[in-house]
């Protein structure tokens, strides 16, 4: 399990990385390498050149920008895990991050790397899709952005242009006062790819009415999806209503199937996990009122 030979170059900036990609269509960006390195070792991936962006320090940051949290592409997952800013302002990502690999892979793995590799079951992608994050990238035309609604297009396949280097992700922060989150995942071992996962964020108004609900499901289809259950918004504490809305919303998704989880399993458990994520998010939002 030794990779096929490749050249190696360190990019000085995202623009530099993009220019290097433009030079060679078989170039490939490496950041933390926690997804790419196994693929290199198995020779599933065989780039001609690796363009290392891990050291681009201006891409490593977590910034509070009022209505959004900006996270640089080369920010290590462990920094997100330990960030008090994330814990406070982006609790859904805070909850999800401990499900990403295990401590040693989070030490090297980056937020951008996870988004760029776009595994169907990746937790960071799921949170990005759920909250409708905007991904910023640099390509030949300069700085651009793309919403997660358009970004994910297949298993490990994204709409990112061939010469693009991901620069960061902006996760919207909700302005409502009472916002709760829920994150649920099933896997065989806690560090494995999720069979299915669900992330929910709910905002309640002063009367405990659901003002806003965001729900995302990962591992079910080829990529994580945001699921619209607004139909159940007024009955957010009614299990049957929420389950029904979820089931309807995911009816068109063709579930993945593999030896670890059948399509039926994924479809069925997606509803349960999504419901639980919503329930937990609502519960958490409710508790906030009392705490205030």
């Amino acid at each position: 399990m030794k990779p096929a030979a490749f050249d190696y170059i360190r990019a000085k900036s995202a623009a530099h990385a993009s220019a290097l990609l433009a030079e060679d269509e078989n170039g490939r960006i490496i950041a933390g390498g926690q997804t790419l390195m196994p693929m290199l070792a198995m020779r599933l991936a065989r780039p001609s050149r690796l363009i290392d962006v891990a050291r681009i320090s201006e891409l490593s940051y977590i910034r509070d920008e009022k209505d959004k949290i900006s996270i640089g592409a080369t920010t290590r997952q462990v920094m997100v895990e330990k960030s008090t800013l994330i814990a406070k302002r982006l609790p859904l990502l805070h909850k999800a991050i401990e499900w990403v690999g295990h401590p040693p892979t989070r030490a090297r793995g980056t937020v951008g790397g996870s988004l760029a590799n776009s595994d169907p079951a990746a937790e960071i992608s799921l949170v990005a899709a759920t909250l409708g994050a905007t991904l910023r990238y640099v390509d030949e035309t300069g700085e651009n952005s793309i919403s997660t609604d358009e970004y994910f297009i297949g298993p490990m396949i994204t709409a990112l242009p061939a010469t693009a280097c991901l620069a960061g992700a902006d996760f919207p922060v909700w302005s409502e006062k009472r916002v709760g989150t829920g994150f649920e995942e099933v896997n065989a071992r806690s560090s494995d790819f999720a069979f299915v996962s669900a992330a929910a964020q709910a905002a309640l108004d002063a009367d405990d009415k659901c003002a806003r609900i965001a729900l995302g499901i990962g591992g079910l289809g080829d990529f994580p999806v945001r699921v619209d259950i607004d139909a159940a918004k007024d009955q957010i504490e009614k299990e049957s209503a929420v389950r029904e809305a979820i089931a309807e919303a995911i009816a068109d998704i063709e579930p993945l199937a593999d030896l670890h989880a059948t399509a039926e399993y994924r479809q069925r458990v997606a509803v349960t996990l999504a419901y639980r994520a919503v329930r937990n998010a609502v519960r958490e939002a409710k508790e906030l009122a009392y705490a205030n």
């Binding site: 190696y8 390498g33 926690q34 390195m37 401590p103 040693p104 090297r108």
Partner: peptide, 8 residues
Amino acid sequence: PVRSCLML
């Protein structure tokens, strides 16, 4: 701690 097999 990191995996030295996942790092060049």
